[in-house]
């Protein structure tokens, strides 16, 4: 499942459940749509609820990274579990996606500006 929040030109994508070939295609489509709809620049992934990821997730994330770079933005991820981080590391994703233990969106939340939508 995926839900979205935003702050200015940062799209916040909260993914819950498993990221595999089947779901990665769905996530890609809905992120692309929302990214365009809000005219976003950055993408912040909330991985807190991700229970599984295989290499299909790598492809999906690299695709979103390329898109964000094209629009002058960056990609962030927080809540990445130890297991998922291994997949990040194996592919070098951790070098292009800024991973944080803390929520970069914390400051946004304090301002009460993040609204999650289904």
């Amino acid at each position: 499942m995926i839900s979205f929040g935003r702050d200015g030109r940062s799209l916040i994508a909260r993914i819950e459940g498993e990221i595999d070939h089947h779901t990665a295609d769905e996530f890609k489509t809905s992120i692309e749509k929302e990214y365009g709809r809000i005219n976003a620049k950055n993408i912040i992934f909330d991985f807190t609820g991700v229970t599984f990821m295989d290499s299909s997730g790598i492809g999906m994330l690299i695709g979103r990274y390329k898109k964000a770079v094209e629009y002058g933005g960056s990609v962030y991820a927080f809540g990445v579990s130890k297991e998922v981080f291994r997949i990040f590391e194996m592919s070098g994703l951790h070098k292009i996606i800024k991973i944080s233990d803390e929520e970069p969106a914390d400051n946004l939340k304090k301002g009460g500006r993040v609204k999650w939508v289904k």
Binding site: D54, S55, S56, M60, I62, I87, M90
Partner: peptide, 14 residues
């Protein structure tokens, strides 16, 4: 073109 990472066999091996 389908956003495949090419990491499948690498993951299996690891």
């Amino acid at each position: 073109e389908e956003e495949r990472s090419g990491m499948g066999f690498t993951v299996m091996e690891a």
